[in-house]
């Protein structure tokens, strides 16, 4: 049983990540994180929407916002999941150096560490969408969902988020003093520019290119279209693109980010070793 370096790095890291992240010994905290927090966010969104639009749930704007927001949970979860392991191992468990000198693939190790947050994020997304359909007039009809497009887009999109996570992890490795959820921070910063909460048309023209350059924009659009079809196409933002074109753009950008992540990792790894940062801990 001599598994390849990449596969054992990924699977063992997944195992470790699950042990560390899903702290079942505290089910209360876990429930807050998985169920209550996403629902609270969704509820706030719905209340704000109903005040602003006078309860106009029939407008296509509502599912646009609701679904964009629900799937945006993945953005923070996956990016943080992949990049947080650097700080966790280095600062808290003091094991980063032992992982680093082990015969493993560090990027695959980080990807594995992100799996548990992806799964936990999935629970949150399913609950949020389910609650939306059941209680908030989200026009979701399971018979009309384009499941093929949904799963392919989900897979490519999550891969894309994982690649951004790798880039963040690499940068974290190279930074001496850094102690926050960089994944959540970046997710927060990109929130307004990726069409999660409102169509890109709402943004000033000069800032729109940021949104168009971001794979998250195309991915969220694909998630909406696959789930509620025509409703999502009511907006002009990406209306001129077919589903296949959107998927092509998303895949292309994912590849691009994948290549960038490889080079970023190599460069940051090199720099971190030069500067002695692999086992550098912040002294509180």
């Amino acid at each position: 049983m001599n598994r390849s370096e990449t596969s054992r790095s990924f699977t063992m890291a997944t195992w470790l990540g699950w042990q560390v992240e899903s702290n079942w010994t505290d089910p209360f905290l876990f429930a807050i994180y998985v169920v209550i927090k996403p629902l609270a966010t969704a509820a706030i969104l719905v209340v704000m929407y109903s005040i602003i639009t006078n309860g106009d749930y029939a407008s296509p704007l509502f599912p646009y916002i609701y679904l964009g927001n629900a799937f945006y949970i993945y953005v923070g979860a996956v990016m943080t999941g992949v990049s947080w392991a650097v700080i966790d191992d280095r600062e808290h468990y003091k094991t980063l150096k032992y992982m680093y000198i082990a015969p493993i693939s560090i990027p695959f190790y980080w990807l594995g560490r992100g799996v548990s947050r992806f799964l936990i994020g999935t629970i949150a997304v399913v609950i949020t969408v389910g609650v939306g359909a059941l209680f908030f007039n989200l026009p979701l009809n399971l018979a009309q969902v384009n499941w093929g497009l949904f799963f392919v887009s989900l897979f490519v999109g999550v891969t894309m988020l994982a690649m951004i996570g790798l880039i963040l992890a690499s940068l974290t490795l190279m930074m001496a003093q850094q102690n926050f959820f960089v994944g959540e921070a970046v997710a927060g910063a990109l929130y307004l520019f990726s069409g999660a909460i409102f169509p890109l048309e709402v943004l000033p023209a000069w800032i729109r290119p940021v949104g168009y350059a971001m794979p998250i924009t195309y991915w969220l659009e694909l998630m909406r279209r696959s789930l509620i079809g025509g409703v999502a196409q009511a907006f002009p933002t990406l209306a001129e693109f077919s589903n296949l074109q959107l998927l092509g753009i998303l895949t292309g950008l994912t590849l691009l980010f994948g290549i960038v992540s490889v080079f970023t990792f190599r460069w940051c790894d090199h720099r971190a070793r030069e500067r002695g940062l692999i086992d550098h801990t912040t002294n509180y």
């Binding site: 001599n2 598994r3 370096e5 054992r8 790095s9 063992m12 195992w15 470790l16 042990q19 560390v20 702290n23 468990y93 003091k94 094991t95 150096k97 032992y98 992982m99 000198i101 082990a102 015969p103 493993i104």
Partner: peptide, 27 residues
Amino acid sequence: MVSGGESSGYGLLTVRENLWMFSQFYG
């Protein structure tokens, strides 16, 4: 490699799990 004078390891895992995990990373 092992450095003394520090306490590293995953506190949530048992002694066996900590050690077993590393053995698996080494294939």
